[in-house]
Structure formats: C-alpha cells, structure tokens
Amino acid sequence: MADIAIPESTDLIPLDDAVTPAAADAHGHGDHADTGHGDSGHADSGAHATSTGLSNNKLAMWMFLGSECLLFGGLISTYMLYRGRHAGSPSPSQLYNLPLTSVSSFVLLMSSLTMVLAVSAAQRGDDRNTSTWLTVTALLGATFVGAQVFEFTEFYHEGLGFTTNLFGSSFYTLTGFHGVHVTVGIIMLMALVGIINRSKVPGNKAEVVEMIGLYWHFVDIVWIVIFTLVYLIPS
C-alpha cells in the first residue's frame, strides 16, 4: 500500500501513452503541404515529430524522476533529523550489518549493469538477450529485496520495531519506500519479459525497455545515496 501514490500510478503509464511515432507515421499524412520545418509538430493526437524532437515518454520519465528526488529528499532528511533518537533500541552503528548491506548494495549496483545491457540489446532489436538481461536484472533486484527483508527481520529481533522510536520509524520508512520502489521495478521487469515473449509490446519496444531502465537506475542511485548517508556515516 505504502507506495500507491507515486510509482504505480505514474511509472507504468507513460510507457505507452504517447502516440508512438511508428503508429502515427503509418497513416501517411497526405495533406501537410507546407511542412518545411525540421521540427514540425503536426501534433495529431500525439505528435509523430515533436517540437523539441524528443520523445514524450522520455521527457515525462525524466520529469517524474526529478520529482522523485524531492520525495526521497524528504524521507532522507526525516531520517537524518531522527537518526540519533534511538532510545529503547540499539543504536544505528550497533545495529547495521555492514558486510551484508555492502553485498546487497553491490548486487543492486550490478543490476544496473544488467539493465543497461538489456536496453542495449533492445536497441539492437535482440529480443532474446533483452529478455535474458531483464530476467537477470529482476533476479538481482529480488536478491536485494530479499536481503532487505532479512535485514528488517534481524533488526526487529534485536529490538528495533517500526514504532520503537523515531530512529526506527524513519529508518523503516525510508528504506521501506525504497524497497517498494525496487519491488515495483521488479514487477515491471517481469511483466515486460512476459509481454516481450508474447510480442505484445504496445508502441516502441526499445523505448519501453529504456523507460523501465531509467526508473531502475534511478532506484539504484537513490540507494547509492542511502547506502552512504545512512549506513556508512555513523550518527
């Protein structure tokens, strides 16, 4: 539930919503007598060539990611403010299992590599490798989430519940929000693999893969920040 508001509603949507250039071109606009502009946007319902020459979907995705910076910024700040308030539970530095988190951070980092390889394969039109790399990415993501669940369970047994103190609440909220983002990403990746295998991707396949890739890398860079600010810097 936690994350219904942002990713589920907006992440998936832009993928196919804009009219894809291929589809619009196919209709042959016989009557544009005086085109003349390299960047002409005969914005029929969705523009087959846009005013900036950039894809609608990609613009939307980058804006969404810019917006997400303020979401995670707020959560990170909340954690920063409250990380020292851990009365009734072990302190962050006693609690954190640095080797485990380092390994899971590494796994997430490598999932960015496999994601980018999937995008690269998709741009070559190589469906088989696209599916393979997407699956590997999803598996690495699942490993990360698994490690997070394990970590949460450990912390809980060591005495840090969601409601124990402000440190606990803000820690679980921040990392939980991130975990939900990763989970949403995994669902999108797996759905995408299924759709590619059935050759049912609406619109431009390579672009759909690229969009999900951007989202996935964003989740990764958020973790780069969280890993350093939350785990490596002691309070």
Binding site: S40, S51, L59
Partner: peptide, 16 residues
C-alpha cells in the same frame, strides 16, 4: 500526473 502531462505538452506539441 497533470503537471507532467502539461509540461510535455507545452514543450513537445507546439504548432510549427
């Protein structure tokens, strides 16, 4: 969602 939509519209869908 409206914000993203309208910004893309203004940036990308202007008449020639």
């Amino acid at each position: 969602s409206g914000a993203i939509n309208l910004i893309v519209t203004v940036l990308n869908m202007r008449a020639p």
